[in-house]
Simulated assay, not measured.
Amino acid sequence: MPAHRPDPLPLARFAATADLAHAIEGWQQQLKSERRASPHTLAAYGRDLAFFLDFARDHHGEQPSLDLLRRLKPADFRAFLAARAARDLAKTSQARALSVLRGFFRFLDRRGLVSNPALTVLRGPRLPQAVPKPLSEGDARAAIEAADTVQTVGSAPWIAARDTALVTLLYGCGLRLSEALDLTRRQAPTAGMASLRVTGKGGKTRIVPLLPIVSTAVDEYLAHCPHPIGANDDLFVGVRGGPLNPRLVQRLMEQLRFHLGLPDTATPHALRHSFATHLLAGGADLRAIQELLGHASLSTTQRYTAIDAAKLMEVYDRAHPRAGE
Rank of each mutant, 00 (worst) to 15 (best):
D109L: 15
L66Q: 10
T190F: 00
H259F: 14
R318F: 04
L108Q: 07
K204T: 07
Q129F: 10
A130M: 04
R257C: 10
D88Y: 09
L279D: 04
D163G: 01
H224L: 14
L98R: 11
A165D: 02
R162A: 03
R111D: 14
G324P: 03
D139V: 09
L68G: 04
G103F: 04
G172A: 02
H60A: 02
A118T: 02
L98G: 03
W158K: 07
F51P: 11
L196A: 05
K204Y: 03
L286W: 01
S93M: 05
L69T: 06
K133R: 15
E220M: 12
L89D: 08
D19A: 14
Y45S: 02
P117W: 09
G172M: 01
I24T: 01
S136D: 08
S136N: 10
H4M: 11
S274P: 06
F55S: 05
R251V: 11
A281E: 13
E137D: 10
P8C: 08
A156I: 05
M253G: 03
A217F: 01
K73N: 13
G283E: 01
K73A: 14
P132V: 06
V114A: 15
P134H: 06
E314L: 12
W158D: 07
L108S: 06
H269A: 06
Q94C: 10
Q151E: 11
L69H: 09
H278V: 05
R96K: 12
D88M: 12
I24S: 00
P8R: 09
R110E: 12
P74R: 09
A83L: 11
G261H: 13
G282M: 04
R176D: 12
D308K: 09
A15T: 03
V239P: 07
H224G: 12
G242W: 00
R185T: 02
R162F: 03
L119S: 06
R162L: 03
V150N: 12
R240I: 04
C225V: 10
V208D: 00
Y316V: 11
Y45E: 00
K311F: 02
T267R: 15
G46H: 11
T205P: 12
E137H: 13
M313S: 08
T92W: 01
W27F: 11
V237H: 05
A85V: 13
A75S: 14
G154T: 00
H4Y: 14
A284S: 09
K91W: 10
L248S: 15
